[in-house]
Design a protein around this nucleic acid. Structure first.
Lengths: 248, 248
DNA sequence: CGCAGAATTGATACATCTCAAGCTGGGTGG
DNA sequence: CCACCCAGCTTGAGATGTATCAATTCTGCG
């Protein structure tokens, strides 16, 4: 872990795995060089809280590896996940002093950080960064709205199916391991985290996963690893037939 | 109505009511002049659909007056509102060809439109516009996340109280009509629209409004007009004591 | 005046939550 | 190497909040 960390400290931006998707995606070599001089890495262990609501934020960052979550909490402890941060996603809001959400590392996480002030200054002088950030923010807004539909109108079963579909799709876009029809997915979340994501209790999550398994929509290898025999079937169960659902 | 329209056609940007909050807020006189030459107005009647999902979007726009909604629909007809557009809010996504949501006029609506292509070109050359749009998009993202907490974790009663609080707060930020403690708010939405906003049925909305009235949290004058005797009490009912709730 | 859309209210059904009891598998210390 | 332990998970039974179906009652408007 620390070795990885060290290794990455020496990494230059040109070799970075998230280079073409992160906030720096549009930067030219010149701009990249300046970012390279500003950047520093931080790593967090699975389960560790990266930022607490209300904390002063003196940095912004890109997730390089691992998964983190944004959550909001009501006084009585009810929690709702409001964002899922994957490699290349951006953390922090330029122009805001304190954190609006709890940020938690779900797996071990490595972040590429910039002190907020210098980053903001650079952003003001570098349209490429602002442009990319706008694009990423618009994408996040779309994702948030998709999620609102899920939270407000989908049944528990549909919610679970949707979550699995989302993770599968995202995995596919990165790892591309598709074994002719059936594809395998690791759930990076505990049942409780899924519940917080979906606005359910962990018992309901567990029951619905069992039900989807019983009905042959998914298969389980251990607790966290899932195979999907028929992706279209899963999409049907998810409610939104975005991709080639039945035109009934 | 048409007269208003006509009047506004001649309006110059300097006098515009949303001048300081809209996407053009940061523009200098020069930039404003160019926008002024590009802009044109469109008006829609209450109930009218402004854009359908999947429509080609050849324009982007700012809401000048009135209220519009963004909604998503599942095949079987379940609907979820995913955005509430108020004066100064921006419609359309630069860089995207087709609409991702249905946009509907809830009241009569007047929009200040720009053909998409010229607007995009101008945006590329005018950091002030891109900056402001980024800021607005980040604000919308925060609002969407607040909404996710509501949809995922709040009870029906809390949802209603939250909605009333949101509208009251927004009204307050514009109209500032605060009658010493008790403040009056118009609900610009039907019960069904509230239900679509909150992920409830209209019957549940109606019941919870009645309950809040019975408990003295709100008073009704007619169906659409509400008075709030004690705003802090309302915030308590809303669950999130963001402003001076009880520090229990 | 009377109609139509909007809202209220009631009775019942059902999905999800809550509380509670086991199960499982991987790690640890004896 | 085994027994234990514990966090994560599953399953059950019952409670509860919201949806659904079905009348009425408002209210504004032609």
């Amino acid at each position: 872990m620390l070795q990885d960390h060290q290794t990455l400290l020496q990494h230059d931006c040109g070799d970075c795995a998230i280079r073409h998707r992160a906030v720096c995606a549009r930067c030219d070599t010149d701009e990249l060089l300046r970012l390279e001089q500003m950047k520093y890495y931080r790593s967090y262990q699975a389960g560790q809280t990266i930022v607490w609501v209300g904390d002063r934020m003196d940095f912004v960052a890109s997730v390089v590896t691992g998964i983190a979550t944004l959550t909001q909490t009501l006084e009585d402890g009810r929690r709702q996940m409001v964002g899922l941060l994957l490699p290349s996603d951006f953390v922090g809001r330029p122009g805001r002093a304190t954190a609006a959400y709890d940020v938690t590392a779900t797996t071990d996480v490595l972040m590429c950080c910039f002190r907020k002030r210098p980053f903001e200054d650079m952003m003001a002088r570098t349209p490429h960064i602002a442009q990319r950030l706008l694009e990423m923010t618009l994408d996040e807004l779309d994702a948030a709205r998709e999620w609102m539909l899920l939270l407000g109108r989908k049944t528990a079963r549909e919610k679970i199916a949707s979550l699995i579909a989302i993770i599968a799709r995202r995995d596919a876009s990165l790892n591309l391991r598709r074994a002719a029809g059936a594809l395998a997915v690791d759930l990076p979340l505990t049942r409780e985290e899924m519940a917080d994501y979906l606005g359910l209790t962990l018992e309901t999550v567990s029951r619905q996963i069992s039900a989807l398994k019983r009905d042959g929509v998914i298969r389980l290898d251990g607790k966290r690893s899932i195979t999907i025999p028929d992706f279209d079937r899963l999409l049907e169960e998810a409610g939104d037939d975005a991709d080639g659902g039945l035109p009934v």
